[in-house]
Design a protein around this nucleic acid. Sequence first.
RNA 1: GGCCCUAUCGUCUAACGGUUAGGACGGAGGCUUUUCAAGCCUUAAAUCGGGGUUCGAUUCCCCGUAGGGUCACCA
Length: 454
Amino acid sequence: MNAKHDSHVIVRFPPSPTGYVHIGNVRTLLFSYLFAKKHGGRIIFRSEDTDRARSKREYESANLDDLAWLGLSWDEFHRQSERKDIHQTYLEKLVGEGKAYLSKEESKLTPGETAEVVRLKNPGKIITFVDEIRGEITFDTTELGDIVIARAIDDPVYHFAVVADDSDMGVTHIIRGEEHISNTPRQILIQEAIGAPRPVYAHLPIILAPDRKKLSKRHGATSLHEYRETGYLKEALTNFLALIGWSPGTDEEFFTLPELVERFDFGGIQKSAGVFNIDKLLWFNREYVKKIPETDFKALAAHRLPERITSLLSEVEHAGRFERLLPTIQDRTTILADISRDAEAGEYDFAFFAPNPPTATLAWKKDPSPTVVLPRLEKLAGIIGALPSFPTADEAKEAVWEYAEQEGRGEVLWPLRVALSGREKSPDPFTLIYILGRDEALRRIAAARAALVV
RNA sequence: GGCCCUAUCGUCUAACGGUUAGGACGGAGGCUUUUCAAGCCUUAAAUCGGGGUUCGAUUCCCCGUAGGGUCACCA
């Protein structure tokens, strides 16, 4: 593509504010964005709110906010409902020219009432258009009949408003889902009637649910809004979405938004529908969670911890434990919601609350005889007592390891870990010592010994 | 059903006439500081079927089949 052509790219984002923007539409918007940015073009955000009954301003602002959060941006914002006078001008012109006509009919929306709808006189021709992704597509439009283009002279129907607006705004590239392929011939008919130039069409393959049906609520989250709230990262979302229906042509799979802009091209777009693979999204999210800088992760985590823990963090001791616990949380987090889920399930309680009730039962699990476990805990207390007050996990391991090898790793490590965490499952004992610090570890071992004696 | 689109491992995909058909997710098996998670290693797994074209088809053409889309005064 030459520079002259590039400077003329204008695409549009046309979400309808009748709900939160669907994840499939987000992918379409993303591709429009990538294409426009790659070619230095303009992006027009057009809120398609002509359905007065279903459109809501709250959704419009939520969608604007969610899309911006994702990293997308646009150069202009329009609301379709505020362009009715423009649409009406086009409509009146068509009627005046005899290309469309008013027709008094029983309303299909409110049966019983009659309305004067506007119908386009169908010239009944064969329409062939070029799709950038699929090549030539041909339709016979005779079967469409005289299509309704407005419910009333001042109330255009979707197809008409879209064509009039695209033409009026100078949209050069229409990038949309393949469900619009069969809408294209009728829109071209309208386009030709109003004398608008034909834009370039690129119909993207749709995204299907694992059962190869439409991606709907019953398959889980469908809106960007939900993914955002659940704690999916925008980097993971854009990366994952970009790879459904598009491929860089290589084995690479990690891309930032700017990298996608650079690499994107229609040639890499798939023709066949893609299935939304949540496992892969989860994997991407985990990969990006791993990359979050610790200071940023701290804020994210603090925000999602339950009150019983956050209320402790003003104390120096607990703040320190939280700080040392952070890498463990980050390591166990795939989506941000995992943090609150795990914390609420008590997975991180060990860092802030001493095991209670005592750990006797668990400590006995490995070896039912307290006479065996007790001396081991005592020995362990001696070893740990010689450590600095806040040893690293490696230092703790180094100190304990020889004894553990000598007695049998599990024989020593299991009671130690349980004494410190009070749980059947937890991070390894050395990490626990690191997080708790020497003195707290000692206190917990002492408590476990006391519990075993009873 | 009519019209339209599509067809490589379970999934996302690479190979744009010549490869032992590659990668990733997921799966399976194994290893590791005998828990959990993570991590690491290994491994199974695909060209929808039938005809052509060609020295040679995953790749081009046709026909089946299957899946999807669409048939509104919703967008």
